[in-house]
Design a protein around this nucleic acid. Structure first.
Lengths: 108, 108
DNA sequence: CAATATAATAACCCGTTGGTTATGCATTAC
DNA sequence: GTAATGCATAACCAACGGGTTATTATATTG
């Protein structure tokens, strides 16, 4: 019903193309739009639109490097998702607090 | 790009109304369609449609009880989401293996 | 400076989706 | 047996979303 804090995260990750972009940035590190486009199987504007949405959700950040933009994944942004999942699973074991903490520490 | 195993989970949870339904089932336990409709702010058919989608994603299950259907959350179904999040966060510390294991054990 | 390269924005198209009302089908109640 | 209740399905509709091509802005290269 009412969109919450983690709503844009769920929303942006619900699209397979966007998830693939995010996954690639997570696994292979910083990438230019051109590099991402090459493998995405869609046009550059489409990729740029997806990156914009991911960026607004806080899942990626882009830094200007000359005439190209290098995008990076921000895995810490997944923290609300971890929170929510833990809340829903009704599981509060201290052993698991580590992940959330780590994600927050990654924020530096 | 290519829809994977966790795709229907992300997809169904991307809608705020559906997420609210799932949350309520998680936090308050088994509910009838009428009870869910009462708080959802939308029509009963709309609620039924959402429940169908959640059910197809494995996130809820419905059992017939006379002329009413009681729906229950299946928190174990969140396991792929936990997997994926851990993979993306690049965090493999053994301390965290517990959550996934527990979710699987909840499946009984 | 002119030409090229990179990425973002604009304008548009079409399929999907989340909502509605109407209807059907069991099951319970009178 | 008839009426009423609970839920699912059908048919429909407006809004949204993900794609396209065309264009623009800014950097780099010759």
């Amino acid at each position: 019903m009412l969109p919450t804090l983690h709503d844009p995260i769920f929303r942006s990750l619900s699209d397979p193309t966007r998830r693939a972009l995010f996954e690639r940035l997570c696994l292979e590190g910083e990438q230019t739009v051109a590099a991402l486009t090459e493998q995405a199987g869609i046009s550059q504007p489409a990729v740029s639109k997806h990156l914009r949405i991911l960026k607004e959700a806080g899942l990626v950040s882009g830094r200007q490097a000359g005439r190209q933009t290098r995008y990076t994944a921000r895995a810490e942004a997944l923290a609300p998702l971890v929170d929510w999942t833990r809340a829903m699973s009704g599981f509060w074991d201290a052993k698991l607090d580590g992940l959330e903490d780590l994600l927050k520490r990654m924020d530096q």
